[in-house]
């Protein structure tokens, strides 16, 4: 890159020449505004950059902890994991891939589900773990989501899902596709009890999850600048052979096109969910 910095005198080059921030240290650089921020400060701010409000991706457990009343969350279906019905193999066998991911991520599947409380009220809640094979939905995720709706039906309480998924899990073939219908069925049963289902779309929510329960909410929330859409931007760019504008398929774009009810910054999400539940079913 050295020749590049010489191109125009007086031109400032931002990246590369700057100080490298060591990983795993006390500081990190915001990928959006490049500010170097003290980790503790990000932590305090729900993993949101205090300067530009960039929302860092967070894990399922942290998400649930931020949303539920302190120590109210009880996990369900924690032992439900993927099988390998197609005996699928790419560069690795699917079952080996799953085993590896379970170890490295420390979760059994791409979603964590259970019962908790929000402002004292019971909720059936789930949050996707994007680090687990891109939050992809296979049979185990589909079953866990269906059971999440079952518990909400049984307890006549609201259902909340924090979505973050690349879509259906290819390695389970058409069975993954069927999870879109399966979860829709469980939701259809839940809809009979007149309690709200509130999905929160976080970065990124695409494919089979976007085209099923993520978009079937009574009220649909999204985090700022989350990528939400059916087809991923790469696929669209290949189809139309053009580069897409950076705001395409972001939450703000979805609100503008009438696909999402409201964008809520992460620290305000629990309060907003509580308010909506109150107004709909209080």
């Amino acid at each position: 890159m050295a020749w590049f910095t010489k191109v125009a005198p007086g031109l400032k080059v931002r990246a590369e020449t700057r100080v490298k921030v060591p990983e795993g240290g006390l500081w990190q650089r915001c990928p959006d505004c490049s500010e170097i921020i003290y980790n503790e400060e990000i932590e305090k701010n729900c993993q949101v950059c205090p300067r530009c409000l960039h929302h860092f991706r967070i894990g399922a457990r942290q998400r649930i902890e931020m949303t539920c009343d302190p120590s109210s969350f009880v996990e369900h279906d924690a032992d439900l994991t993927a099988a390998d019905p197609l005996d699928f193999r790419d560069s690795k066998r699917y079952r080996d891939r799953i085993r590896g991911v379970r170890r490295s991520v420390g979760e059994n599947e791409a979603i964590v589900c259970g019962m908790g409380r929000l402002g004292g009220r019971p909720i059936s809640i789930g949050a996707f773990e994007f680090g687990f094979l891109g939050g992809s939905m296979g049979s185990a995720v589909g079953e866990k989501v269906a059971r999440l709706f079952d518990r909400a039906t049984e307890h006549r309480c609201p259902a909340i899902i924090f979505c973050a998924s690349g879509g259906a899990r290819m390695q389970e073939g058409v069975l993954s596709l069927m999870q879109m219908a399966k979860t829709t069925g469980a939701l259809a049963q839940f809809r009979r009890v007149r309690q709200p289902y509130l999905p929160v779309l976080t970065d990124p929510t695409t494919g089979g999850v976007a085209a099923s329960f993520a978009m079937q909410g009574d009220v649909c929330l999204a985090e700022p600048k989350a990528l939400v859409g059916f087809a991923g931007p790469r696929v669209i760019e290949q189809t139309i052979r053009q580069t897409l504008p950076p705001d395409f398929q972001r939450s703000e774009f979805l609100v503008e096109h009438g696909m999402v009810d409201l964008i809520v910054a992460r620290p305000q999400i629990p309060e907003t969910l509580g308010k909506l539940i109150d107004l709909l079913a209080g």
Binding site: A211, Q216, H257
Partner: peptide
């Protein structure tokens, strides 16, 4: 498959499919 285009996304391809499933 459903068409992966700009207009399709603007008009809510994911929502349209999700609504049909329901």
């Amino acid at each position: 498959g459903a068409y992966p285009g700009v207009g399709a996304e603007e008009r809510g391809q994911a929502e349209a499919i999700a609504a049909n499933l329901q």
